[in-house]
Structures are given as structure tokens and as C-alpha cells.
Design a protein around this nucleic acid. Structure first.
Lengths: 230, 230
DNA sequence: CGTCTCCTTGAATTAGATCAATATGTGTGG
DNA sequence: CCACACATATTGATCTAATTCAAGGAGACG
């Protein structure tokens, strides 16, 4: 199995630590299966990659930076479905159009793979179809986990769970450098920006975390933190 | 394509009205693909069909009645992921064990299909693999929709959206006979039983719905109701 | 050094939860 | 048919977690 340098997964990130990075997408086999390597695109922070309702002509893999996928309520309020980091695939909708919007959280680079129809691609390669299936099931598992948190979690449970999620993705176990704003976190957890800020301050006062800067979180007591999750 | 009488979809339910009943599972092709028709099982209300963590040896199709799939928080609180009605497939987890519990909401009959490993079955039949994929993507779309509601919806938005969902499933457009209790609705929407009851009463006082009995809802003004959704 | 954006903190408000009581069935046995 | 127990649902009275409203801080950047 060849791995191109451009889209290789970070070696430090193991599959076991990152359940959303399943075998299907840890290599660049899709680029081989779907034709030549897709086009490399670059986006500045907050730039839309695609919007809900757009014709779904491509799907994407994050090379660097972070992408958010989200939906909007009629009153303009936002629900972030998930954050996508290096190696993650997004925009993988069936049907003619995207059901969520995708936006760059930070400066980021992605590869766009044209999909003339995933059905057609999957039809000629059943191994590919199985990879798609595995990917979909993994996303589903995460979405169900998220629903439990949104429906029944308190602010503290939401924040601690979020921090532990982010810690699993990061290079270091202790220090998390958050790529997203408080507003992003709020919209991911179904909270307000003030509640996010207050809850983080509260956890810091309790000595469970440290906040050297707004975007940097130090997990001081993972055991206590885990006990607060759910 | 043959359709057995035992598991045929209700003719009145169209695919467009029921996006979770996609082509993949509206017929009994799975039974043919996975061996003889699975065993027919019967469950009384509130009986567990399987529990979170059990080895996932089968998946199921609802023949009659309603099934709920749910998870529990450590404090015992419950989040219902979805309700499954006639024709719906559930228990379709990859990995060794179920990630959610399944319980009978009402008296219900299901067919259990043994799965020695869906991967293996899908490997020998790519059409089957594509059906699995489509099913997974449909579940995912619904889960994401539900997240938006749980994360950002008010009690009124949650209840009205729920009622419209149920109306789409039912035989009649105007009258809904709810198969589930107030507690089930509360756990599906991330509310308490009291808030569910109060919100329904409130909608009745406003003349938007009628409540001839606790379990029967009459949609009096679908236009207003739709405007309240989100 | 000012301006801008993002973040934090405080005070007041409120939507929904919790606590507590009453009502509405619903089935059972007399 | 009624009386009773038991489930489930409604309604009312409080309470509280989180939101909203309103100031300030803290960096970043020209």
C-alpha cells in the first residue's frame, strides 16, 4: 500500500486513539480508486468550503488545519456537527446535495476528490463500498454519542467530554491547543459562549485544568475530568 | 424482486414520506442474501431486545409494533436515539457489540437475521454492501438532524418537530396515535416528562393541536405547526 | 497607541427542571 | 356494576442551570 507524502496521516496518530480515522481513510487509496489525486485547496479561517444545499460534487480530506461541518436554524443559530482534523474525510453525503455546510476553522488545506457518484464508484469496487460503509458507520456512532451529550449532558459534562475528545486527537496528552473559538465550542455543545467560558473558568478554579492562554488547556487531573464526563 | 407477505412494507407508506425506509430495506432481499428468513420474535412492552454491550449477533426488522434504541448516562438517565416502526431495520452495528440498547415500546414482532459478520456477507455481494452503506448514510442523516434539534431547539420546537415526524409515519395525516409514553418522548427529545406534558397542553390551548386522549394527537393547523418547528 | 476581535466576568432573567399534588385512566376482583 | 390498586398523565409551585444583557479585560495588529 503506497502512501503519498501529501496526504499521509500523521504517524503519531494511531487508529485506536482516533476511532474516526478508520482503516478506510488512513491511507490515500481513495485517490487511486477515484482517479488521479484530487485538487489541493487552501482556505483562510471562517471561509465556507461548501454550503448546505450546494450540489455535492466532491468530498474532501483534511491535509492540515481544522474544518467544521454545521447546520443553521431558521433564527440563525448554528449547530456544529463535528470538527475535522488532519486525515479526516468530510462532505461524504449521498443524494444530490450537501446536507451540512463546511467551513474552515483555522487556516487549512484540503484535498477535493470529485465524485461523479459514489454509487457508481462503489459499484465497480466492492472493497471501496465496504470502506464507505465503515466510514459511514463510524460517523454514525459518533453522531449518536454526540446526541446523548446534547440531549442529557450538563454544561460541565459537555465541556469535560469535549476536552477529552480534543485531548485524544492532539499530539500531547496533557496540553491541548484549541484551534476553534469559544463560539465554535458553544455551537458544538449546544451552549452559549458565556457558559463555555464560565465552565472552563470554573474547572480551572477547581484545579482540574489550567488555562495559560484562552486557546490552550492543560489537563491537570484526567481522572477527575473523566469522572465528570458522564 | 419478490416481496414476502410477512415483511412487506405497508403499501400506504411511501418512500418519500419515510426517508429512513430506503430502497435497501423496503423488501426482504436481505433474508434471501443472508440465508433463510430469520426467526420471528415477539416482545411485550418494555422488554429488552438486546442491551448495550451485548455481542451483536443479529440485526432486526420490525414487523409490527414499535422499538426504541437508547443509551444510558451513568446517573441512569436515558437518551432515546430513535423509534423504529414497521419495516425499519435496527441493531445494525459494526464491531463486536451493540452500542445501544433496544427495547419494545409496544407489543411488537420483529425478525432477527443472524449476521456471522456483515463484512463477510458484504464482501461476497457488493450490491448488499451498497445497501448497507445507503442504510448507514440514512441513519446518519437522521442522527445529524436530531443533534440540531437536541442542541439548539426549544421545548416547543422539539415537540412540534416530533409530532410532524410521527405524522409522516402514521396512516392518517391528521390524527396521530402515539405508541410511546410521555417518558419515551421526553427521553427522545432531551426534556422531562412534565415539560412534554405542559408543552402539549400549551399547544392544545393555542388551538394548534387537539388531545382527545393522552396518546392521541390531532394536528389542527399543520401550517402553524410547521412554522414552530425550526 | 488606538482599534478590533475575542474572551471573561457580573447581574438579572428565564426556560425548563424539580418537587408535590391531583387527575385520568385501566385492569382486577368482588 | 362498583371499589380498589396501580400506571400514567396533568397541573401547580418553586427552584436552578443556563441564557441574556451589560461591562470590562486581554491580546493581536496596523
Amino acid at each position: 500500500m503506497s502512501v503519498s507524502t501529501a496526504v499521509a496521516a500523521k504517524p503519531s496518530q494511531t487508529t485506536s486513539q482516533m476511532p474516526w480515522m478508520t482503516s478506510a481513510f488512513c491511507d490515500d487509496s481513495l485517490s487511486g480508486d477515484l482517479g488521479p489525486t484530487g485538487s489541493v485547496l487552501h482556505f483562510p479561517p471562517d471561509r465556507a468550503i461548501y454550503e448546505e444545499g450546494d450540489p455535492a460534487r466532491s468530498f474532501y480530506k483534511v491535509v492540515s488545519g481544522v474544518v467544521r461541518t454545521c447546520r443553521f436554524l431558521s433564527d440563525g443559530r448554528r449547530q456544529i456537527d463535528s470538527f475535522h482534523v488532519e486525515g479526516d474525510v468530510f462532505g461524504f453525503d449521498i443524494g444530490g446535495e450537501y446536507r451540512l455546510s463546511a467551513e474552515a476553522v483555522s487556516e487549512c488545506t484540503v484535498i477535493a476528490y470529485r465524485r461523479r457518484g459514489l454509487d457508481a464508484a462503489a459499484a465497480v469496487d466492492d472493497r471501496l463500498a465496504r470502506q464507505f460503509f465503515t466510514h459511514a458507520m463510524t460517523c454514525l456512532a459518533r453522531a449518536q454519542e454526540h446526541s446523548l451529550l446534547l440531549g442529557r449532558g450538563t454544561a460541565v459534562q459537555k465541556i469535560t467530554t469535549f476536552l477529552m475528545e480534543m485531548a485524544e486527537r492532539g499530539a500531547c496528552d496533557q496540553v491541548i491547543d484549541l484551534p476553534m473559538s469559544r463560539q465554535d465550542i458553544a455551537d458544538y455543545l449546544g451552549l452559549t459562549i458565556e457558559t463555555v467560558s464560565r465552565t472552563l473558568s470554573h474547572l480551572e478554579r477547581d484545579g482540574v485544568i489550567g488555562l495559560p492562554t484562552a486557546r490552550r488547556v492543560v489537563l491537570k487531573d484526567r481522572r477527575v475530568l473523566r469522572g465528570m464526563m458522564a
